[in-house]
């Protein structure tokens, strides 16, 4: 089993596994490894976002953090070198989130080995649907790196089954149509849909987009294997607050 699936299945705490997102080099490039370390202590998986000039699936928060990172010269090359030089040892496995173009610019030939050296276990590419992913998927498989697929509320059921079968690491279920950084309402229909996905997917199912607080995590808990928290965590970093404490605070209070 891929390190990502293993970390989600064997979450160290009660409740669903927590996948925490932060933008590479954010808020400051010099202190990024320390920030990453704090978050990896608290989360089960860490998703590191490569900043991109045109993040079409992201809302204002991640647009902002991407801009701040790019202004400091953060790039995929910088991130991989920095992680490679860090000696690893993070408590949680690392996922790399990137729009496709920075990956193409780096070169799909060199990318998998460099990612492996940097301690990355898998990739999330939000603008790369199943039909277009074969080249990247083949390249990543050479280093046993996972490629996570998304499933959306607009995805027809037959396609959802295909995505559930093709996804590696986990299946990223979008709680709502739209971009990151909103507030998901999580109606009953969404919970039932998540449960159906969980029944058909070969990998764990994690819900993301619009997850900001412990009440939402608790509501999702019976229906998913993990939840993904992005913009809310970036906002915590933006305000200079304790990211580790925020992640811990998302877990349901232990009963009794």
């Amino acid at each position: 089993m891929n390190a990502i699936s293993a970390a989600i299945r064997g979450a160290r705490h009660d409740g669903p596994a927590l996948v925490a997102y932060l933008t590479a080099g954010y808020p400051r490039r010099e202190t990024f490894l320390a920030t990453l370390n704090d978050i990896a202590e608290a989360a089960d998986v860490v998703e590191i976002g490569v900043p991109f000039s045109d993040p079409m699936a992201d809302g204002l928060t991640i647009q902002r953090s991407s801009r701040v990172a790019l202004a400091q010269g953060v790039s995929l090359g910088w991130l991989l070198e920095t992680l490679d030089g860090s000696g690893g040892g993070f408590k949680a496995p690392l996922l790399l989130m990137s729009y496709l173009n920075p990956l193409l610019a780096y070169g799909l030939g060199a990318l998998p080995a460099a990612a492996r050296r940097a301690g990355i276990s898998g990739f999330i590419v939000p603008d790369l649907p199943l039909e277009e992913c074969m080249e990247l998927k083949a390249a990543l498989s050479r280093e046993d790196l996972a490629l996570v697929q998304f499933v959306a509320p607009t995805t027809p059921p037959e396609r959802a089954a295909e995505l559930g079968a093709a996804s590696e690491g986990f299946l990223y279920a979008l709680t709502m149509n739209g971009i990151t950084g909103q507030d998901a309402a999580l109606p009953e229909a969404t919970l039932a849909w998540l449960a159906r996905l969980r029944a058909l997917a070969a990998v764990p199912v994690c819900a993301g987009f619009g997850i900001r607080n412990a009440a939402q995590v608790a509501r999702l808990a019976p229906h998913v294997d993990g939840v993904i928290v992005g913009s809310a965590l970036v906002e915590v970093l933006e305000r200079g607050e304790d990211a580790g404490a925020f992640v811990h605070g998302l877990r349901p209070a232990r009963a009794g």
Binding site: P129, F150, V151, A152
Partner: peptide, 20 residues
């Protein structure tokens, strides 16, 4: 059939937009 013009074109979008 894949929306290609030789090597160019395609459909690089979030999953939400694939069905539409």
């Amino acid at each position: 059939a894949r929306g290609r013009y030789g090597p160019f074109g395609g459909r690089y979008v979030p999953e939400t937009l694939v069905a539409p």
